[in-house]
Design a protein around this nucleic acid. Structure first.
Lengths: 393, 393
DNA sequence: CGCCATACGTTGCCGCTCACAACAAACGCG
DNA sequence: CGCGTTTGTTGTGAGCGGCAACGTATGGCG
């Protein structure tokens, strides 16, 4: 049971709302802010003055107004000066970036990641990438935090990676390790890749403005980032969205998680390659080769892809019935699978989905592409800033 | 993109928080309200004065304080004066009640419901029950609204029942019909039975204080009321939580919804009776007779119950992996099934659930019992009052 | 070139809400 | 009966946003 916000919190929320607006929508005129946020001109003026005072935004005169009247000052996010570090730890590669307020990637480093590297061995690699990037940071710039997207189950309380079946990680404190290694005086926030990618697409991608979204992300395994009622569904411990381990075949093929017949065993990397008789192959390239073969008429590859597409539609139908989303996004390897088997997906979905749930659901591919985990990780870090701009800035 | 609340909204929220507290926790001393809500004594005083002014609460001196110091005034909800009407439309019966602020059932009427009655035939029955109850309402009492729990898919926008597979309803505007029939000057809010029961258990049942809950409700079919992050998961159109139509057997037994192999076909009334070789029987009594037979050693009944328990655990495991709840509640017929087959449920859950998700999940039966839909329906109506007490009161 | 209409930012004022401190009231205890 | 304790009440102050009046910058027009 909680009381309403104090007046001080109103101020914080309004500052956050204004900063969030220019962060998401880019430079905006005061006039537009006034109408969109529903605040008075004088209030907008005071808020921008505060934000400009700590260097989070700057104001400038517009070049051309196009119409009569005094032109409204334009509020710019300080994209070069205010930034966050973002990491994405994927099965086959590591990616690091410096992302400016506003969401632009200012700098980036990509590294190959040999499968089987643990957290202790991974952190120094990421820290090295950071040190490289740190040299080109302009003087006076402000780092507001670091975000990490990792394929595995992340404990909400402290960012511990409980289990990354596809990376082999168990109870790896990647957040703490990275914080120690980086030596920055900012918090490191850790999140699941699918969750974080969904967050990014919701903030500035295809899911903008949608309150009920399922972002299906395939790497080697399959996970989902779920937005329900406009908010990320995390679950009690932070492990929500593990749809890859929804069992679709009772007592089916053994899965790496210890269970049997998980959805992942049918549509994940291993399952797909196995169905195509390519059990020896692995990695994203092998997958792309398989889709390519199917595209060129290889019968066995086509059969495997169609079958996986059918299973993809199967699982999506279940999720659609449970969540009644307005949008399902296929990211990572699921994007490729969906594009290669859209007919099967739709057919299954239509036969299994409840009519009311099918009514408004749209199937889409991501707008941010492979950058979604990075952008989302940065967004994780920016969230702190947006919650209390003056405290951080 | 929304700005923070205005000062006026602060007031509304604080009034709502105070009223909600005494509504949920019963009569409370001002002193306790001060510490719990984190507001100043003077503020609490002003808020209670406002609420007492419109007759929503009353203040009184406590009988015995037990300790030194000036005794704190006790704020009572006006349980007799302020009330809502609640309806529950179940497959085999109709229930109507008058529920006072604070959650007590002041009056009630139960009716048999022949299967196959449509909304137009149902509304007059409910209206009749209301007219009876309306006669015993004390003078000066205030009706704040009516809530309806119905087993079917309810459109969020207007309360239309899109589909009630077990009642045979299709696109029945029960909310509008009831509003017209009742002739009251208050809004009628409609919700899915599982959703509403979950709401009730979350407000004042076993799920109090739990932010991630799955309430599994079995009538003839099976649905779920889901609380995620402390809020009800409704989905885009309001059709979320249809877990009964999660397919667990690809191309399995045909389901009333048109699909095949739905969870409901294994653990629903029909499925359970069919597995026990009692396809001709129907209704809750037949189910109870089946559990009773299993309890007394009937081998075929035992086999059917164990098998259904296994399927129950199967579906729950999937939901636990997807939502990572801290609590799963078995209500309606699911309560009976769970109690009769807890061993099978737990065994399946343990073998299929991800360890991290199993860590904190508890399985429970409801605290409010069969009244949950009624109490929840009333809660639906009270929600309006709590959102803006002075406007309604 | 000067005037006007338009749209905007700024300033001062008002109302509202909550926190705080001082005072008064009610109770238990010795 | 007096004391300490706990609490309600009252008045004051600070912070916030809304509002209206005023000054200002721009474009159109004659």
């Amino acid at each position: 049971m909680r009381a309403g916000p104090s007046q001080e919190e109103i101020r914080r929320q309004n500052l956050g709302a204004l900063l969030r607006y220019v962060h998401v929508h880019g430079a905006t005129s005061r006039a537009e802010l006034t109408t969109t946020l529903g605040l008075n001109r004088s209030t907008i003026g005071a808020l921008t003055a505060d934000l400009a005072g700590v260097g989070l935004v700057s104001e400038g005169t517009p070049k051309e107004t196009g119409r009569a009247g005094r032109p409204s000052l334009v509020v710019h996010p300080e994209s070069e000066r205010v930034y966050a570090y973002a990491y994405s730890i994927e099965v086959d590669r590591l990616r690091a970036a410096r992302v400016g307020l506003g969401g632009a990637v200012l700098d980036r480093r990509d590294l190959e990641r040999p499968r089987g590297l643990d957290a202790g061995e991974t952190a120094p690699l990421l820290a090295g990438a950071l040190k490289e990037m740190h040299q080109s940071v302009p003087a006076g710039a402000l780092c507001v935090g670091a975000g990490v997207a990792v394929c595995g189950m992340v404990r909400k309380a402290d960012g511990l990676v409980r289990l990354g079946p596809t990376t082999g990680w168990v109870d790896e404190p990647i957040g703490a390790a990275l914080a120690a290694e980086l030596g920055l005086d900012v918090p490191v926030t850790v999140g699941n890749v699918a969750d974080v990618a969904a967050f990014a697409e919701h903030a500035r991608g295809v899911a903008a403005g949608c309150d009920n979204v399922i972002y299906l992300y395939g790497d080697v395994g399959v996970g989902a980032g779920i937005i329900a009622g406009g908010r990320r569904l995390t679950g009690h411990g932070g492990y929500g969205g593990e749809v890859g381990h929804m069992v679709v075949v009772r007592d089916g093929t053994r899965c790496e998680c210890g269970s049997r017949g998980c959805w992942e065993t049918e549509i994940g990397e291993h399952g797909l390659l196995r169905a195509a008789g390519r059990s020896d192959a692995r990695g994203r390239d092998a997958l792309l080769a398989l889709f390519d073969a199917a595209d060129r008429g290889d019968a066995r590859a086509q059969r495997a892809v169609r079958q996986a597409g059918d299973w993809l539609g199967f699982g999506v139908a279940n999720l659609v019935n449970i969540f009644n989303p307005e949008l399902v996004i296929f990211g990572g390897t699921m994007r490729d699978l969906y594009l290669a088997s859209a007919a099967q997906v739709r057919s299954r979905l239509n036969s299994m989905g409840l009519p009311a749930c099918l009514e408004h659901v749209r199937l889409r591919t991501p707008k941010l592409g492979t950058d979604a985990p990075l952008v989302g990780a940065a967004e994780l870090a920016f969230e702190r800033l947006l919650a209390d701009p003056l405290d951080v800035g």
